[in-house]
């Protein structure tokens, strides 16, 4: 074919090219290996130094007294809520049930009712 590029290579030249090519690949990747090892060492030592710094900072910090008790945030009420229902001797699950029954009996939605407190009436109090 007319358009075939390239020349025939003498055996000696082909052998030299083969050896040279393999050496170029080897040397190129070996140099790259050295660069990556160096970068790796720098990164590892930086990480180690930053860990040591953090450890030292923690150790040198005054042995502070027990951390101050964190003030409990006031419980946030749900939007539209009329406040918390006070329960006396009543389990929250029972209270929820009672409120649902009351709403059902009154035929009114729960959000239109206001429960101030729920108290269990003992037998001897009747």
């Amino acid at each position: 074919m007319e358009n075939i590029k390239g020349e025939m290579l003498p055996v000696g030249t082909a052998l030299v090219d083969s050896v040279l090519g393999y050496l170029v690949v080897f040397i190129g990747l070996a140099l790259l290996m050295v660069v990556i090892i160096l970068v790796g060492k720098i990164m590892v030592s930086r990480t180690r130094r930053s860990i040591e710094k953090t450890t030292a900072a923690l150790a040198s910090a005054p042995a502070a007294a027990a951390p101050a008790p964190v003030p409990q945030a006031e419980k946030k009420l749900a939007p539209g809520s009329a406040g918390e229902v006070k329960l006396y001797d009543t389990d929250p699950r029972d209270a929820a049930m009672i409120m649902a029954i009351v709403a059902n009996r009154l035929q009114k939605p729960l959000n239109e009712l206001r429960f101030v407190s729920i108290k269990e009436v003992k037998k001897d109090e009747v």
């Binding site: 075939i4 590029k5 390239g6 020349e7 025939m8 290579l9 055996v11 082909a14 052998l15 090219d17 083969s18 050896v19 090519g21 393999y22 690949v25 080897f26 190129g28 990747l29 070996a30 790259l32 290996m33 990556i36």
Partner: peptide, 25 residues
């Protein structure tokens, strides 16, 4: 990386073999 380099041996071996079989460079 050295293993990746070593495994290019076949490239240059076949290149040499191809020139022996009459292929151009």
């Amino acid at each position: 990386l050295l293993l990746g380099a070593a495994a290019q041996f076949g490239v240059f071996f076949a290149f040499f073999g191809a020139t022996l079989l009459g292929f151009n460079g």
